[in-house]
Amino acid sequence: MPQYGWLLDPKRCVECRACEAACKQWNKVPFGVRLRQVRIYESSAGKVSALAGACNHCDNAWCMKACPVKAIWRNANGALSIDGGKCLGCRQCAAFCPYQAPQWNEDLKVMQKCDQCPDRVEAGQLPACAALCPTGALRFATWDDIKETGVARIDNVSNPAGTRPRIRFVVAGFPG
C-alpha cells in the first residue's frame, strides 16, 4: 500500500482556513474540536508564518506508545487513528504529541485526531483539507514525493526529528 505524507508551503498560506472548514464538514467534527488548525507564528523579529497544523502521522509515534490501552492504530497507508471505543480519555497522547494534534471531545469524552480521511484516500481523493486548499499551501502526496520536495525543519515551529513525522516544508520563496 502507498505511504503518504504532508507538505506545507507557508508562503502560500493566506489564513483562509478552508482546510479547517473542509475537515470539519467532511468529518462532522463537533464544535470545540479542531483536528486541523491554521496557526500563526511570529518570530521575535516580526516575521510571520502561517501553517496548517494537524496530526503528522509520525513513523515513530509517541502518542501510540503513550496510549495505555493501545487505542491508537495505524492503517495500511500509514495513517494513525484513535479508536473511540477503546479510548479512556486519559489524554496521554496529547501530552506526548509535539503538534497539539489529539483533541479532547468533551461530548464523547474521548480524544480525536486527524485520521487522514481514509474514506477519501481509498476512493482516490485527497483528504478534504488538502483538496479544498485554494493555494497549494497544504499538499498531500506519496511520502516518497514529499520527501524529495521539502525540508524537515522550518523556523518558528517545533518539529522534533525523534517522532519521524510525515511532514516536510517548502522553504524556497517565489522566483524573482
Binding site: K28, P30, F31, G32, N105, E106, D107, L108
Partner: peptide
C-alpha cells in the same frame, strides 16, 4: 441540542 447546535443536523 447536539454538541454542535445546528438545524438539519445528524
Amino acid at each position: 441540542h447536539a454538541a454542535e447546535p445546528r438545524l438539519f443536523g445528524p
